[in-house]
Design a protein around this nucleic acid. Sequence first.
DNA 1: TAGTGAAATTTATCATACAATAACATAAAG
DNA 2: CTTTATGTTATTGTATGATAAATTTCACTA
Lengths: 240, 240
Amino acid sequence: MGSQVKNRPQSIHGWVAAELGTRIVSGVYAPGEYIPNETTIGEELNVSRTALREAFKILAAKGLIESRPKLGTRIRPRKYWNMLDAEILSWCFESKPSPQFFISLFEIREIFEPAAAELAAKNRTEDQVAKLSDAYQAMENAELGTEEVFSSDLEFHLAVLEATNNEFMISLGMTIQTAMMGLFRLSSSIEEEYKDSLPDHRAVYEAIAQQDAAGAKQQMFELLADSKENLDYALKHFVE
Amino acid sequence: MGSQVKNRPQSIHGWVAAELGTRIVSGVYAPGEYIPNETTIGEELNVSRTALREAFKILAAKGLIESRPKLGTRIRPRKYWNMLDAEILSWCFESKPSPQFFISLFEIREIFEPAAAELAAKNRTEDQVAKLSDAYQAMENAELGTEEVFSSDLEFHLAVLEATNNEFMISLGMTIQTAMMGLFRLSSSIEEEYKDSLPDHRAVYEAIAQQDAAGAKQQMFELLADSKENLDYALKHFVE
DNA sequence: TAGTGAAATTTATCATACAATAACATAAAG
DNA sequence: CTTTATGTTATTGTATGATAAATTTCACTA
């Protein structure tokens, strides 16, 4: 009896963190609410207190929970959640996110990506321009229908990020990119759009190479505009 | 004998996480390098394996380290570090950050704060306008030389964030704000600037209230420009 | 040379005991 | 009656020791 669960990934504490993390972001446990005490919930999940506490530390590190002796462990207010964390994002995707979730994600992306391109145009080194060129070439050569389509696209955007030489930009961009990629992989309209987006990518690359900050920003903005139908797709297929 | 250390905060695992986190961001352990195995470093720090492992989970959750059986625990490449995490930032501040660190932080701020104001002008509700108004009033009434100067300023910027109704913006903005505040508290030039910045704050508030997105963005940009000498201060006093 | 398998090292998990904390109730003192 | 002190108790925090699991390494074999 008790809790039956699907796939236990690598480690148990990892699985517990994912299980509880998903419960939290999906609202099973609401902010302010207290999680049952460690021994109780440990029995419910059939894990030792040790493993459970290691999971708690993970969740606490991401701002989701807060533990105090005598009081217990409770869910922190949403505004303290580290939403731009890869794991939290993946837990959100598993939880039938609200439309607002996707809208917000696209809003951030529309702010962030052009800004990254602008910064890259200002800060990039010659080496980084070369890498960017390689990444663009890989996109041109990618065979439709293969995984290459996604990986080369991802590679290009990561090359832009690195060219910003701003570690915060890089950190932020990595999580946003991978989140978006996870979404795009499920979208069907990708194949056709891919060819069409090549000129846009080239324009971004060239603007960065020429240190044309305003141009890079603008070109990236246009690139994003074209892929915006993915938002519609997400809204249709992911929200309940 | 052994390791002598200053202040052990609340919990031991919390202290260990801070201690090792600081070592990592300051480069004592370099990316790719392996940390001594759990029993060894546990003895060095005089903590049980239990507490040490809980600290490891915290660091792993923030992307700093990665553990594997037989191999051990090693520092992950910098690009996987969750740099926009409040704790990681505080560990960075304690470690004589490079000039590039501060420059990057200010770059990020200059991108996201105006974007947040713009978004707030678009998405804000009437309730949020009221809160923003209150926050501005508190700034006007704040007595110079008191903690109120900082707290009301912080309150205002947080109110802008909340008005974006974008949970990613809120999460991102909170960490940036608190990091900057920690810096400004140490700057001497704050007092004079404070009065001067009131009109700018008011302009931001009014633009948001009037749903003037472009205006809000522009006004916030100007507000930041005025406080930019704090960067000079940081560069002078924090870098070695 | 390739493949197979045993060994060794390290993390992962569990069980148990005890310490520390802080909320709450209770009682004592003013 | 209010305040202060004290003890009780529920919960997390820490320590220890034992065992399991993972996986790299390396020797051995075909």
